[in-house]
């Protein structure tokens, strides 16, 4: 004998609520823990000074700058290539065996562990192209890492642009490329931005890919060119927490670093949400 539909409805509903509460609870716990432990470490000095005394004192300024460089560097490579690739795949390629293979490759790329990207970047950019451990090598490696995410989300965004827009533009005697440029892309921008935001989070947070390609253990100065090594927040955090000379003493700095990283990612998300909303408002009612 099965449960009455009312009872099963209640059970299902309770389970869903529970799952949501668990997720929300963990997010709050993590955020709260980091904020509580980290906010004490944060002051103007912390974010504007070089680290000193074997990183047990001073600030994390170069790591912040390095992370921002990485974001700018990898996005400026991955975004145009990713968007263009997605346009080609979605608008021009059609359904062929080759397209299917490319799509499969992109899916697999998205599932590849980031440490593999790191090793690949080391082999290709650092060694083969001779860029050395540098911002350039690390940015390119991160760009590869987020490329599938950007292609996927751009494709998704392009698919959701109604086919009526394309048809009516073509029916006005507008060429396919002009249609994509003037109608399809503008309508897809909110979706593309959403994808990019996810990527920025990854760029800011990944450790493994930069580990082999240019992140420095300790470098109390700012990089002076794209060929310089650099510090980055996640790696800095890793170093402080595992390899520092005095792990207990650097604990507040660790939490402070984590909080700064969190703030950077969240504020980038916020900016993206605002941009997206701006476009939505412009496009829709």
């Amino acid at each position: 004998m099965g449960l009455s539909s009312k009872t099963s409805e209640k059970i299902a509903f309770s389970l869903l609520i529970l799952a949501t509460l668990i997720v929300a609870g963990f997010v709050l716990i993590i955020l709260g823990y980091i904020i509580l432990n980290g906010y004490g470490a944060i002051n103007l000095e912390f974010i504007t000074q070089m680290p000193n005394r074997m990183m047990t004192e001073g600030g994390i300024y170069p790591a912040i700058v390095g992370t921002i460089y990485l974001i700018i560097g990898s996005m400026s490579v991955a975004l145009p290539i990713g968007v263009m690739a997605a346009i080609y795949l979605n608008e021009y390629a059609g359904e062929s065996r080759t397209t299917w293979l490319i799509e499969m490759a992109i899916n697999n790329l998205a599932g590849t562990p980031s440490v593999v990207f790191g090793l690949f970047g080391l082999a290709l950019f650092v060694k083969y192209f001779g860029f050395g451990p540098s911002i350039l090598s690390a940015s390119l490696t991160l760009a590869l890492l987020i490329l599938p995410v950007i292609i996927r989300s751009t494709e998704e965004a392009l698919i959701t642009v109604p086919k009526e827009y394309r048809e009516s533009s073509l029916a006005l005697g507008v060429s396919k490329w002009q249609t994509i440029r003037h109608v399809v892309l503008p309508a897809a921008i909110p979706g593309i931005i959403t994808g990019s935001v996810l990527s920025i989070g990854r760029v800011a947070g990944e450790t493994a890919p930069i580990l082999f390609t240019g992140a420095a253990y300790f470098l109390p100065r700012l990089p002076d060119s794209v060929y310089s090594q650099f510090m980055a927040l996640p790696y800095h955090l890793f170093v402080l927490a595992t390899a520092g000379t005095n792990i207990a003493k650097t604990r507040p700095i660790q939490y402070g670093t984590a909080l700064v990283l969190l703030i950077i990612v969240l504020s980038l998300n916020l900016v993206a949400v605002l941009i997206r909303r701006h476009y939505r408002n412009k496009l829709k009612i």
Binding site: P162, Y165, E167, S168, L170, A171, L172, G173, P186, L283
Partner: peptide, 19 residues
């Protein structure tokens, strides 16, 4: 493209562009 300038088309669903 030129042909479609001379032969316009209006579709089933009203589909103005989002502009």
């Amino acid at each position: 493209v030129d042909l479609r300038k001379k032969v316009g088309m209006v579709f089933q669903k009203p589909n103005p562009f989002p502009m």
